[in-house]
């Protein structure tokens, strides 16, 4: 009697074990399957970009301005130049402000309410949609000037760079050991020199990484440029006037009904991605080389 009960319990136990291990295998399989599923669009996107972009990329793309509708050829020379100018302006405003704010957070604002508030505001600013940034730049600059300008576009992108740079700078400065700072102070070096020549210098690979990531992020932004830089069919370096930009040009060409323009859009996308991937790869090299690793 008791023997059968034991066997029954044993059987139930075995069943239970089987079910547990089946569930375990099922979840493992699900995780593997999902990862494969997620890698498919990535490969598809990169694959199509290479296939479509490379076949329509030629020298004319880099040295010619857009051709009128219906004429073959033409390129995006003006858009590449325009993007370079806008991004240079954005970087020269955004990077110094971002690094300085990061220095404040790491060197002066640690453990203070004010510092936490700045940190929180930066995180929130990071999540503001880029199109809203465009409206703000439009209202502040374009509406006052009464015409679209490359300057407004640069400012909108600069604002978007600040939070990312601030937070990475702060994180990287936090890894600099306190003993190094104290040694500098002990030699009679003022605090500002200590921050500039010791802390920032020690953390520089990480900070450069942050700047490149912020750059890579805004380089592909289209929405804030729609009604600030606006776009231009001709080569122009005048920041007070509408100026062409690569992402903007890709958008205009992608939604146009002309095959020739679609071809150029793919080529433009490939160039844009190559630029961004170049920046990200540089980041990888920088952050792996000469970074301070657990120097406590």
């Amino acid at each position: 009697m008791s023997g059968t009960r034991t066997t029954r319990t044993a059987n139930m136990n075995r069943l239970h074990e089987l079910r547990r291990s089946a569930v375990n295998h099922f979840v493992t399989g699900l995780a593997v399957f999902s990862t494969v599923l997620v890698l498919v669009p990535l490969v598809a996107i990169v694959g199509y970009l290479l296939y479509k972009g490379a076949s329509s990329l030629n020298l004319a793309f880099f040295i010619h301005v857009p051709a009128p509708v219906g004429e073959p050829g033409g390129g995006m020379a003006n858009a590449i130049m325009g993007s370079a100018v806008i991004l240079a302006l954005a970087s020269s405003i955004g990077i110094p402000i971002g690094i300085a704010a990061g220095v404040y957070l790491a060197e002066y604002g640690r453990g203070r309410h004010l510092g936490n508030l700045v940190r929180f505001t930066a995180d929130v600013l990071n999540g503001v949609p880029s199109i809203v940034m465009g409206i703000a730049a439009y209202s502040l600059i374009v509406a006052k000037q009464h015409h679209f300008s490359g300057f407004a576009g640069g400012v909108a992108l600069a604002i978007m760079m600040v939070p990312t740079i601030t937070r990475t700078t702060e994180e990287m400065l936090a890894t600099v050991p306190h003993a190094i700072r104290e040694a500098a102070l002990g030699l009679g070096i003022p605090k500002w020199r200590t921050v500039l020549s010791i802390s920032l210098r020690t953390a520089s690979p990480g900070i450069i990484t942050g700047c490149m990531l912020a750059f890579a992020r805004v380089a592909g932004e289209t929405a804030p440029l729609l009604f600030t830089a606006f776009g231009n069919q001709f080569t122009s370096f005048d920041m007070t006037q509408p100026i062409a930009a690569l992402p903007l040009q890709i958008y205009v060409y992608a939604v146009s009904p002309y095959d020739e323009w679609h071809r150029l859009a793919w080529a433009g996308a490939l160039v844009l991605i190559a630029m961004i991937m170049g920046a990200v790869t540089l980041v990888r090299i920088f952050s792996n080389r000469g970074a301070l690793q657990g120097g406590h």
Binding site: L39, I45, T222, L272
Partner: peptide
């Protein structure tokens, strides 16, 4: 794989749009 999935984050919105349209 981690790098590949994070690469998805680096692709600009307009390129996703282009890919999606075609």
């Amino acid at each position: 794989i981690a790098f590949l999935t994070e690469l998805l984050a680096a692709i600009p919105s307009v390129v996703y749009g282009l890919w999606a349209v075609f």
